[in-house]
Design a protein around this nucleic acid. Structure first.
Lengths: 202, 202
DNA sequence: GGAGAAATCTATAGAACTATAGAAAAAATG
DNA sequence: CATTTTTTCTATAGTTCTATAGATTTCTCC
């Protein structure tokens, strides 16, 4: 039976979550076996059940881990006192570097969460859509301050930003030699100015 | 043994591909069983092997189907005589409506192709990256004609467009009541002008 | 309507995987 | 160092799934 909270148990459970994240990211939820996960952390298949009561619980924990401090960072960006452009840059940087740093878990969240049961999925969905709403709020504020054009659909804008980041995120996970900062610059540039040469006048 | 090419065999094989696409889109490759696929097309599990020699072959065919005429459409858009803006709109429209029309297969291509073996995967990768290159070419042309700013990284631009389309595509597959044309308009607007209110002057 | 071909069915071998139970080893405690 | 608690291991029951083989039904065409 699990210990109170300090020592080895917590530590190993965390290792298990990371191992699961890594394996799920590589092979997908259904393509991974509990043996794969256990081996990655250097224990035997059966021992894994000391830390998770089921494979699905492992997925659930990975998704939560992938989303959590991530959504938290978004909240603090949104709350900060900066002009729109800086917040946008911070958001994109946060999102994209997350993929590089460690976060196979984020990839798993994006790709595999739909295999969770209803209740866990909605729980996660709330976290995720909270994230998006924060971002939408940043655009709304930007409109108020005049930094963003009045005709922009902020809900669309938030989805688009996330789409761009995730799309590049997958590339980044695959190819660790990519230049992240160039991607970030380009993304910010696109969101702000688009690619058109027609000076937009109205 | 398969017939020449006309009749029922070709027809049923195509039905099998569509059934597989539908099931894979819903449950993922590893999460789907051959029983699921067979049932969706109204035959028994074992009978499926009359049309595919393995489950993986089914995936391969689905991905190919998802990508093919799709990439073809892109070629004809790129080759057409239109200004940049029209080509961009056509591309985004083609990409996004594809998700609505039918194409669970495209979703499968995006999510599951990595489970194919090396050779098939590179084959598909070529198709996919051919698609992206066509799009990149449209941007390059746009630069030459002055419609696209000279400082735009066209490779980045092509990835970004695909990212936005795929991101919305997933939403569209989930929620069939969304207004596609609004999404297309917004996407084109973003790509052309961004969201910023600062008139870009240099 | 009967013969041969095409399409589907039934049944199953063989492999893989999840989850559990109980034994064994390792660590902590006094 | 003996005892208790925590962690890991071995073994396996029970499922499920893919792929194949051979029987059976449906179609085609003369």
């Amino acid at each position: 039976m699990p210990a109170g909270e300090t020592g080895k148990y917590e530590q190993q459970r965390h290792a298990a979550i990371r191992a699961a994240a890594s394996v799920f990211a590589e092979k997908g939820f259904h393509g991974s076996s509990t043996r794969d996960i256990a081996e990655r952390m250097g224990i035997k298949q059966g021992s894994l059940y000391y830390y998770f009561k089921s494979k699905e619980e492992a997925l659930s924990e990975v998704c939560l881990y992938g989303m959590q401090d991530y959504a938290g960072r978004m909240v603090s960006i949104a709350a900060s006192e900066q002009p729109f452009r800086a917040k946008l840059t911070a958001t994109i940087t946060s999102h994209i570097t997350k993929y590089r740093e460690k976060n196979e878990a984020l990839k798993v969240y994006n790709a595999e969460r739909l295999y969770l049961d209803e209740s866990k999925r909605t729980r996660l969905h709330e976290l995720g859509s909270g994230y998006r709403q924060q971002l939408e709020g940043i655009f709304v504020e930007g409109q108020k301050s005049g930094e963003v054009r009045a005709d922009v659909d902020c809900r669309f804008a938030s989805h688009a930003v996330i789409g761009i980041c995730n799309s590049w995120g997958e590339q980044i996970v695959r190819d660790p030699d990519m230049d992240i900062y160039e991607i970030i610059d380009n993304s910010v540039g696109l969101i702000l100015n688009g690619f058109s040469n027609n000076k937009h006048t109205n």
